[in-house]
Amino acid sequence: MSRELGPVDHGRLLEALEIEARVLGEVAHTASAEAPVPTAPGWTVRELVRHVGSVYGVTLGWLREGRKPAQWQRGPRQDETVADHYAVARDAVIAELAAHDPADHAATWWPADPTYGFWRRRTLHETLVHRVDAERAAGTAHPAVPADLATDGVDEVLTLYFGHRLAVMGLAGTRLGTVGVQTGGHSWIARAGPDRMEAWRCSPEEAEAADELVSGEPANVYLWLWGRAAPTAVISTGGHDLAAQLWALLRLATR
């Protein structure tokens, strides 16, 4: 029986990954390779595609070798184009994930979930966020993000990156306090401070009792937490300092 850690089941995650990875490749093909990516300063579309292809390669290393690869494959081989490198890695990682039950054991960088399901979710959201980046580079004004995937992504970025990744990186908040997050019928609390960084799902009442509350449409909250939307994309009540700290810390964890 597969373990479902988020609002979306693993079958939907894999299906969405296949769609998002295909669309990202199509958008990158139609955009100029040298077009700047406004939501990822310093990157061009070419660098964006190279990055995602490399992430797929690293994911395959975790799955096939049972550990983090010794080094990233930063780019295509001499006989490969960036687009070919991306396509080969994309097809390989999707095939590997599809060939295993999400509950099957797999090495991961999150002790709470050592399964193939972790990588279905992580690979989807890596792809989805960068598909949005590619569409922004191509001139799409408001890239669409399905509400169910956005809600799942909010859960992932809070529990995985805020609640785990920041501590691994040795990063912490300077102000102690809690931020409630509400969207898509789900609620969370993120608590930061000099000696603690944690996030968990909670009741609506608990979220509303936090020091500050961030809410909005799922796509807006998701993209805001990933640094892809302006502060005005979400509604912040009870103040702004702790919400700003949450956003800034996540920018460090997810870059």
Rank of each mutant, 00 (worst) to 15 (best):
M1I: 06
R3K: 07
L5P: 05
L5V: 03
L5A: 14
G6W: 08
D9R: 05
H10P: 01
R12N: 08
A16I: 05
A16R: 03
I19S: 09
V23N: 04
V23F: 11
V23P: 02
G25M: 02
A28Q: 02
H29V: 03
S32F: 02
E34G: 11
P36Y: 07
V37H: 01
P41C: 12
G42K: 09
G42Q: 08
W43L: 09
W43H: 13
L48P: 04
L48M: 13
L48K: 00
V49S: 05
H51A: 00
V52Y: 09
S54G: 14
G57F: 04
V58A: 14
V58F: 10
V58C: 12
G61C: 08
L63Q: 00
E65A: 15
E65M: 06
P69Y: 03
A70L: 11
W72H: 10
G75T: 01
Q78N: 11
D79V: 01
T81Y: 10
Y86V: 00
A87Q: 13
R90V: 13
D91M: 10
V93D: 01
A98I: 10
P102M: 01
D104Y: 03
A106M: 06
A107H: 12
A107I: 05
T108V: 02
W109P: 03
P111I: 12
P111S: 14
W119P: 02
R121I: 06
T123E: 08
T127Y: 05
L128M: 15
A134H: 04
A137G: 14
A144H: 09
P146V: 03
D148P: 03
T151D: 02
D152C: 09
G153E: 07
V154W: 02
F162N: 03
R165M: 08
L166R: 01
A167Y: 00
V168S: 10
M169T: 09
G173D: 04
R175G: 03
R175F: 01
L176T: 15
V179L: 07
Q182K: 06
T183W: 06
G184D: 01
G185I: 02
S187W: 10
W188F: 09
I189A: 02
A190S: 01
A192N: 13
A192C: 13
E198R: 04
R201E: 13
S203V: 07
A207K: 04
E212P: 09
L213V: 13
L213S: 09
E217V: 10
R228A: 09
R228S: 06
A230C: 01
V234C: 02
D241V: 14
D241C: 03
L242H: 14
A243T: 14
A248G: 13
L250C: 11
L252N: 12
R255F: 15
